[in-house]
Amino acid sequence: MNTTFGKRLLNVPCLVWSSIFIIVPLFIVLYYTFSDGKGGFTLDNIYELGLYKDVFITSIIYALVATFICLILSYPFAYFLTKISPNSQKMMVLLVMLPMWMNLLIKTYSWTVILDNNGVLNRILNMLGFDSVKFMGTPGAVILGMVYDFIPYMILPIYTTISKIDKSYLEAAADLGSNSFSKIKRVVLPLSLPGVLSGITMVFVPSISTFYISQKLGNGMILLAGDIIETQFKIPNYPLGASMSLVLMIFIIISIAVMNKFGDNDKGGIMI
């Protein structure tokens, strides 16, 4: 009796906080979504979204690609991290985070200096006898921006779950004849899945609405959902901006629910 009460009590602070600072603003967004700007009710904002279908699809594709690249880079990286000495591991975690502490605008300018038509990278290519490559303004540069922005949010949760895996499981697998590849496939991967799912969520979700680094590396030639929502809030056309972000939110909730349905086992429950 006492303990169940205690358990319920645990949810109180978060519930109170979420109600004030998340639910109420959500209602503000809902209000604008169905508002015609003069206090009346309308569905026009939803209908108008059809015009921006392509932008949303582009953003989703870019975010998916960026998430995938983050995942295939982060998993081995996080796995290798668990192999080095425990003290260095702590330092590495902070080393991965440290670049994110620097100002985004300055990092963006710096990427421009590296990637521009006669930037650092192209000069190195020229020195090696290759022709210059146009990096800036390509979808590749936009995705690079997203990967750069969010990769720590993939590395860290994967690392923390892999590092927690009981070594004896691995020994047992080895005793039962697993080679290192099948050890990873059959033991490490399944046990680190919660971390992978968290990582995917933390990369995919913000990637969809990001626009800063990726917009700038895209030379302003590639339009993303984050851009058009920002534009609506600047016009200011809050109703249209709000309905765009609501639709984006619903899409994200559905896709994460689907992901967790496939990825999560019985113990965890749905993570989102």
Partner: peptide, 21 residues
């Protein structure tokens, strides 16, 4: 499900929407 979804909303909302609301 509801509680976990709600706590994730700030991550799903574009920054300008969170900021203005």
């Amino acid at each position: 499900t509801a509680l976990t979804t709600v706590t994730n909303i700030p991550m799903m909302t574009p920054e300008i929407v969170t900021g203005v609301s």
